[in-house]
Every structure is written in structure tokens, then in C-alpha cells.
Write a protein that binds this DNA or RNA. Structure first.
Lengths: 179, 179
DNA sequence: GGATAATACGGAGCGCCACTCCGTTTTTGG
DNA sequence: CCAAAAACGGAGTGGCGCTCCGTATTATCC
């Protein structure tokens, strides 16, 4: 338990306010000042806790990102078939749930930079295991890499972010290609 | 020939300056004031010619969008096979060439709104013809629509916009799915 | 339990952005 | 050549992400 009690309390309030606001209007459209106001906190406090907007996004999204890595391990343990599609569905759902995230997720996953970077890396490792198993079973083309899989899934998720359409048909087509 | 001569000249200069700047730094990062300065014109002039940034983008991108529709017709006339892939490659190249365009292109194609809307609609019609022919030949799955095809291709293009990676591998996978 | 040092808070302010408004200059047509 | 119409230039606006610093709050030590 680190830091002062008021600091911890304010940080928690900020993350909660950000989660709500991001879900309501999208991460792009949400203004940092509005997050601070909703949390009942001064703007300065927000910026001390999170050095930039992406850091706040990372905190909001972090847990469910960790959840994705865990889900991959669990599917690998319990699901004899169709686990790859199940997991990609979950990935797309996760990105769709956090509007405005796709772009920063993509960047973070690619460069490994920023606060999202390490967590994305964990997700990629989990995806790699899942993909390897699927390839053994002939459920995925052998030349596909985990990074490519994530890129494609993120792209599909992004389409529904921009169009507010249903990504399911897109995923069907994509999975025909993954084989 | 409509309007005053200086107005026409300035408009042309603005479009040219925007084309250059967008290509150099990306449409998102390019500031409207910089476009005006590069064109040797006051900011007010820029905003009278184009009511918002997207309108300027539309003008810059319009011609090559028209070119895409024409290309579809030409491929249909001259290319006995592989025309669908050729065209999608061109579509992706077009979007990649105009960094920052993918999102507004997607929105315009979807809602048919804005200055890009009608031109995107023409592209979609052209794509529909191309796709129908490919489906006759068994080169594309029958349940795919032109809108979905464009969405998928735009999504793939967007991945390379965010990651500066090569979209070719993505397209390979995608086309396996298109069948 | 009070004094003091460490820590966190609040909000005014900065630079940049897309975008607006209006007084001034240039083109045009009779 | 001269007015009316049309277009120009650029200062100004509000909102954004983000910084800075004087003030208030918490923790520590006697």
C-alpha cells in the first residue's frame, strides 16, 4: 500500500470516472478536464496521476487486457476446438467495448512502447501459444504469426468502431482466410 | 468556368498545398493554418473555400477515388482473372497513400454523408460489379457484399497506417477468406 | 498532541488546434 | 471609369492536451 490515502482515493475516483466517460462518449471525444470534474478533482491532480491521456486509457483498459491473456490460457486448457475463434471474438469484443482504443492498442502492440506496451506484449505471447496449438491441429494456416493475427482482429474491431456495424460477418470472412 | 479568377487560382493552390502537406506529415497532423501558409494565402481564404478540414481532404482525395471507380471498370473489361485482388490492392494503396484518411473514408462510405459520400458510393457501385463478376467465376464467396469487401480492405489498409507495416501479408490472408 | 517536513491538491495559464467574423482589397460588368 | 459584388487577410474564439506553482492536507517525530 503505497502513497498517501487521499492520493490513492483520488486515483481510484479518476479511473472510475474515466471508465464511465470513455464508455459514454468514446475515449477520443472525452476531454481530460471532464474526467477530472466527474471525479470531483482538479485537473492538476489528474495530470499528476497520469502523465498523458494514453496512460489513463491504459489504466482503464489494463485489467481486461490482462483478462485476455488469462482467457487464452484457460481456453487452451479447457476447449478442445474452436478456441482460436472464441479468443479472437473476445479480443474484438474487448476493443469494441472501449471505443477509441483500437488505434492506441495497435500502436502499443506494435512498438511495445508506453504503458500499454508491456500488457499488450503479454497478450501477444498468449495469442502465440493459442495460435501454435491451432496450427498443430490444422485449424490455422502455418505461416500466420500472432502479431498478424492480432493486427487483423484489431482491424476488424476498428471497422465496427468507425461504422458501428456488426463485426461478426467480417470475422467469418477473416477466419475462412485463417483457415 | 465559375467564380472569380483569383478565387479559382487560390483554390487550386490550396488543394495542391494540402496534397503535399498531407502526404508529408499525414492528414491528422497537418494544421489548416500551415496549409494556408504553404499556399501563400490567408487562413480565412482557406476556410471560405472549404467549410471544414474533411472537405479539404475530400477534394484532395476525390480524383484518385474517381480513379478507383474507373479502374474497376477497366479491370472488368481487360483482365480475365485476378481482377478482384488487383483492384483491392489498388484500393489499399490509395488509402495508404493518404495517411489519416482511412477513418473518414470508412465513415463516408458507410453513411454516404459529406462531400466524400457520393464519390464513395460510386466506388462501392464499381466494386459491386467487380465482385458480382468474381462471384460468377467462383473467385469470391457468394455471400460477400461490396460494402463488406470495402470495409475489410479499408481495415487492412488502416493497419499499415497505424503500424507503418506492409499490408500485403494481411491481404493474402484476407483473400483466402474471400475465397 | 502539536510542530515540521513531505506530499498531494487545485486551478490559472500556455501553446496549438479547428473554425469564425469582419474591415479591406481586388475583380467585374455596365 | 466607377460602383457593386465578390473574395481576401488575419485577428479573434473556444476548447483541447498539458504545465507550473502557491496552497492545503497528510504523515512523522518528539
Amino acid at each position: 500500500m503505497t502513497g498517501r490515502t487521499d492520493a490513492r482515493r483520488n486515483r481510484a475516483r479518476l479511473v472510475e470516472a474515466a471508465r464511465e466517460l470513455f464508455a459514454e462518449v468514446g475515449a477520443d471525444a472525452a476531454a481530460m478536464n471532464d474526467v477530472a470534474r466527474r471525479a470531483g478533482v482538479g485537473p492538476g491532480t489528474l495530470w499528476r496521476h497520469f502523465p498523458n491521456k494514453e496512460a489513463l486509457l491504459a489504466e482503464v483498459v489494463g485489467q481486461s487486457l490482462d483478462g485476455l491473456a488469462e482467457l487464452a490460457a484457460e481456453l487452451l486448457r479447457t476447449e478442445p476446438e474452436g478456441f482460436l475463434r472464441r479468443w479472437v471474438d473476445a479480443l474484438v469484443a474487448h476493443i469494441t467495448r472501449n471505443r477509441g482504443l483500437a488505434a492506441s492498442f495497435m500502436r502499443a502492440a506494435e512498438h511495445g512502447e508506453g504503458p500499454l506496451g508491456t500488457r499488450c506484449h503479454a497478450v501477444e505471447l498468449a495469442a502465440a501459444e493459442l495460435l501454435a496449438r491451432a496450427q498443430e491441429l490444422g485449424e490455422a494456416r502455418a505461416d500466420l504469426t500472432a502479431a498478424e493475427l492480432i493486427r487483423l482482429a484489431t482491424a476488424v474491431a476498428w471497422t465496427s468502431e468507425a461504422t458501428e456495424g456488426d463485426p461478426v460477418r467480417m470475422l467469418d470472412v477473416l477466419f475462412e482466410g485463417i483457415l
